[in-house]
Simulated assay, not measured.
Amino acid sequence: MLKLKFIIPAVLIVFAGCSPKVQNASSNSSSKNQGDSLYLIFGIKDIIKTGEKVSLKFAVHNDQSTEKSFCKWHTPFEPLMSKYLDIKDENGNEVPYKGPMAKRIMPPPADSYLVVKPKEILSSEVDLLKAYQLEAEKKYTVSYNSSGISGIKATNIVTFRYTN
């Protein structure tokens, strides 16, 4: 009788992000009220001509009276390393992401978090052309898809026309 040996390699791939909860910078309480978090507001020009940067402003607001922190992974507060935006054209077709995709393990190191002081706004910009192939003479809608990773709640979507 032939003896079969099964070798089962143990491969652990951890697709990890930061905690989905926004953390209070001065405590680790996990019971947060819905209104007790950071929120995101996008900004972009209505009409952008080809050849110009397609700069999306990403502003994180802390309206609370205590410091809050969020994971900068999947935000423009770090170099472009993941698909954290959904961009669709006027027909609802998703624009393919062509940028880098980082895989990370838990727990995120301390330097992965940014602190937002009470009543403060942190902002950053990302050029959408660095990771998305936009076509001229189309209207696009942009939304944030990584609230569960960064802990930032998106409050709006933006639209713009990319034209000659």
Rank of each mutant, 00 (worst) to 15 (best):
I41R: 14
V115A: 02
P20R: 03
M81Q: 08
L129A: 05
I157P: 00
V158C: 04
L2M: 09
R161Y: 02
R104S: 05
N164D: 10
P118Q: 06
Y84A: 05
N24R: 11
V14K: 09
V11M: 05
P107F: 02
C18S: 13
L80Q: 09
A154C: 12
L114Q: 11
I41H: 08
L38D: 10
L56V: 15
K117A: 12
R104C: 04
V116F: 06
S27F: 00
S124T: 12
E67W: 00
K5D: 04
K32A: 13
A154E: 07
I47T: 14
N28V: 07
I157K: 11
M106A: 12
K119L: 12
I48L: 04
A136K: 14
S55Y: 09
P118Y: 03
L128W: 08
S82A: 13
K98A: 07
K83E: 14
N145Q: 04
T159V: 11
T159G: 10
P9R: 05
M106Y: 03
A25M: 04
S124F: 00
Y113M: 03
V22W: 00
D89L: 09
K68I: 04
I121A: 05
S143K: 14
S150F: 03
R104H: 03
F6I: 15
G43S: 15
G92Q: 09
P79H: 08
L12D: 05
E90Y: 02
P76F: 01
V115Y: 01
I48F: 00
Q64P: 03
Y140F: 10
C71D: 12
V60H: 04
L80G: 05
M1K: 10
H74S: 13
K32T: 15
S143A: 14
G92I: 13
F70P: 09
I8G: 06
L80M: 07
S19V: 13
P108R: 10
K49E: 10
N156A: 05
F70Y: 07
K68W: 00
P109N: 07
K68V: 02
A136R: 08
T163S: 03
S150E: 02
K49M: 10
S37W: 02
V60A: 08
F58R: 07
V14R: 06
K72E: 00
L40C: 12
V11K: 05
I157D: 04
C18V: 10
P108H: 06
M1N: 11
Q133K: 06
S82H: 06
S37F: 06
L56D: 06
L85W: 07
R104V: 10
K21S: 09
A25W: 03
M101P: 00
K57N: 13
T159Y: 00
Y140H: 05
E90A: 12
E94G: 09
K21Q: 05
E52G: 11
M101E: 10
I47G: 00
A25Q: 09
Q133P: 14
S123N: 14
S27C: 09
T75S: 02
K49T: 15
V11E: 02
L128N: 10
H74P: 00
F6D: 09
Q23D: 03
S27N: 14
V158L: 03
G43R: 14
E67R: 06
S143V: 15
K49R: 12
S143M: 06
D86Q: 11
L128Q: 07
